[in-house]
Nucleic acid binder design. Structure first.
Lengths: 116, 116, 116, 116
DNA sequence: GTGGTCTAGACCACC
DNA sequence: GTGGTCTAGACCACA
């Protein structure tokens, strides 16, 4: 795993975890690696993983069983899709549309939709 | 003006300046506000504006006349369009398309293009 | 049974056992479930139950007959009432009163006592 | 400042900050000490203060101006009262009532409300 | 100067 | 074994 970008590592890890859940690699309701385990797998300090897990727990994607470990929430998949959809439609899309209109780019043409 | 987002403030200001030039609010070749002036207008430290102007000068959108002030380049508009088009098509668009397909969003429907 | 709270699980179990004794569900002097049994009932590691029983034995609420099992003490009920009364009045009550006054909550109104 | 209890230090600090806001020592909308400053004042690592501020920011009690510092929210006071009231009425009160009834303590008598 | 992230290493309570 | 908290110290970008 590479951490090129400006984004904090703990959020990049969070993203890849979301991807793993979306793609079905990590099953909702199942245990995920311990902070130490994932830390050594990714070559990252356990504290950093802790931060990732903290973040994901705050948005109810994963939860903790005391002394046992972290588990993906049963509805983790739906939550992720929902979160990302909402963010895309509310935050990113307006900016994209504004930019396209300023740059004179026609979305219909761009996406090769056929106008009748 | 709010600067809540993760992007550095000096780049956010740079973006709004580009927008002002694109939209015709700021005319190519004309003088733009001084660092201090714009700083107090936006409620931002002059150093931050300095960084913005530095950045815009590096990509030849604005230039400086010593002791006089900053001016928009004559071809500022074209340069901005060119820069942003290239960045949008090469960098952002692929990510947008990937995300839309993952989230099951149909661009043609989204932009209300008529499919025949 | 959920163990989401911050209190250690073994103490939470201890609390519910006290409640069972207070409410008469568990009779003083009688045998209580084995560590393994209660563990599987609650979906909890037997070690955790062991800790609970250890704790309850220390404060003389239950006792152990080697090779036979754990039993509630004959005077378990009185002991629990005594312990909890003292703790409640000395430790918790002052904090509760302070908090209610800070938050502007009137205990008399809260508990629907009639003021004449 | 003493940190006797089992509660994490960063939450204890959070509590004292809430108290400072409630009591009017810290005014809503004003800047609060930097992480380093408060850290050295309290004899605590800046990282720990960072955690406190992170927590308080998450629940919208304070907010951050980039490169400038942290500020108390304009409605910080109301938010705190609201949060604490809700927590008390929903979480603590039911437990208190249950306990009092099990222990045979009469709230009206306890709080010296006059029954007519 | 400010916050923010990360590491390394320690210690603790809990399961 | 698990998470959770804390420290010390470093480095970075930003204002």
């Amino acid at each position: 795993m590479d951490f090129n970008e400006h984004k904090p590592i703990y959020l990049q890890i969070s993203d890849t975890i979301s991807d793993k859940i979306l793609s079905g690699e990590w099953i909702p309701g199942e245990r995920i690696p311990s902070v130490r385990e994932l830390g050594s797998t990714l070559g990252v300090n356990p504290n950093t993983i802790m931060r990732t897990y903290d973040y994901l727990q705050n948005i109810d994607i994963i939860f903790n069983k005391r002394g046992v470990g972290y588990f993906t929430a049963d509805d983790a998949r739906d939550k992720i899709v929902d979160l990302q959809r909402r963010e895309f439609l509310n935050e990113e899309l307006p900016l994209i549309q504004k930019k396209m209109s300023l740059l004179g780019i026609d979305p219909c043409e761009l996406f090769k939709c056929q106008n009748s």
